[in-house]
Design a protein around this nucleic acid. Sequence first.
DNA 1: CGGTATGTTGACAGTGATCAAGAAAGGTGG
DNA 2: CCACCTTTCTTGATCACTGTCAACATACCG
Lengths: 241, 241
Amino acid sequence: MSNINLVRPTTFQLHKILGTASAHAKSSSPAFILDDEQEQAKRALLTMRRGPIRYRRNNTIVCEGDPTDYVFLIVDGTVRSCRTFHDGTRSIVAFHLIGELFGWTDKLKHSLSVEAATDAMILFFKRSVLLSIASHEGKIASFLLKATTKELHRVQEHSLLLSRSAKCRVASFLVDLSMRTGNPKCIELPMSHQDIADHLGLTIETVSRTITAMQRSGLIARASSRTLIVLNRAALLRMMN
Amino acid sequence: MSNINLVRPTTFQLHKILGTASAHAKSSSPAFILDDEQEQAKRALLTMRRGPIRYRRNNTIVCEGDPTDYVFLIVDGTVRSCRTFHDGTRSIVAFHLIGELFGWTDKLKHSLSVEAATDAMILFFKRSVLLSIASHEGKIASFLLKATTKELHRVQEHSLLLSRSAKCRVASFLVDLSMRTGNPKCIELPMSHQDIADHLGLTIETVSRTITAMQRSGLIARASSRTLIVLNRAALLRMMN
DNA sequence: CGGTATGTTGACAGTGATCAAGAAAGGTGG
DNA sequence: CCACCTTTCTTGATCACTGTCAACATACCG
């Protein structure tokens, strides 16, 4: 774990983040934790936080094989969970955006590396403490279970994506990203094309060609190098099949 | 949910299954639930079971879109979690073997279909009941969290597999299956080649060719149409990279 | 024993990878 | 603000892995 820089966030920021996380969780599922329980869970979490620590782009937050002492919450930025194979190829299992909790496991060692895809601020929670609190605090247990369940859904959908065509993969990725960031019309890519390629099981050339093709067909336009404008959402959705 | 036949299992069978499930969970992770808590969790689960129901091979247990009223435990057989796309292609996200709990979600509707890959016996647990018990019974909450975490790990590894070569995918699948069934030397395939192909994002022809190639290289032998003998495990592991 | 489902093998085609070159973007120091 | 350098992205030509189509073989089952 290589901590580049240590920054104290304002209490306002923390509450904003945790608020974002729970609001997000609530909207996509039936009543799972009551609102006052959410509040209690939040307060309990805040008292046991460590950090946040600031990471520069492409720095490693944890390596594969590191002990699973901490769970992470993204205060700012985008991170990638990935593995680099012996032949040098890399696969990115998931991107995690602002407000998301990740890195939970019941293993002793992390099975994936976690790296900052952009400059990022990360809050740390000691896993053992989280676990012991969860054992007698139903709200924390529910919070953990919900975060894990949501992550499971996300990875399931991603695994389904990987056996489809390059066009479908890129279209799905862009639509999904626009949904997650909450702006369906304008897609700000926080990661490089290489990161996208490694996430979709494609090469950077194929990603580039696919996006260029979408542009030529009038589905999207480029506002800047990493900002896409959705011109024909219906056609984009059709491309996902 | 189409229940073909209803069979009452012996108490012996039930305890065997739940015993298997917890022994399995225990071996692959650090102390998470104490043993007596495991026992209590088991007993609590047993009192709220429904079924088991018997399903014939290829019958549907739940359809994508069905309400998520129940969570499932496999008493016997192998099931597949899958999705069929508009163009008729099918992808299998995961196979679930005897003793595994699956189908947990925080959504209102199942996002995947669940089908019997072999004749199977399934125990049902009402999700709402499980959830309300979990809110004040730490053991059940831990049980659920652990099952979900384990499933998340499995799907993560699978998504990593899908961006690798056909040879690597098939080799990894066979090795993984031999580990899960607990017999590293003899692989009894409970599912068809078509199922394997749909799981690995390949065609049935490629799966067939790859297995034939392994046989010709002396890595494996065929005892019967669906039973493989591992002759050179080291080479098989090397093929996984 | 015959019929259907499942698996195997070959010939060929296509999607996406690889290799290579160049263009654009971003960052740094003068 | 510009020159310079590095990183990232784009585009083209070619290749290879895996898919497609077709025919046949084998297993399974009433």
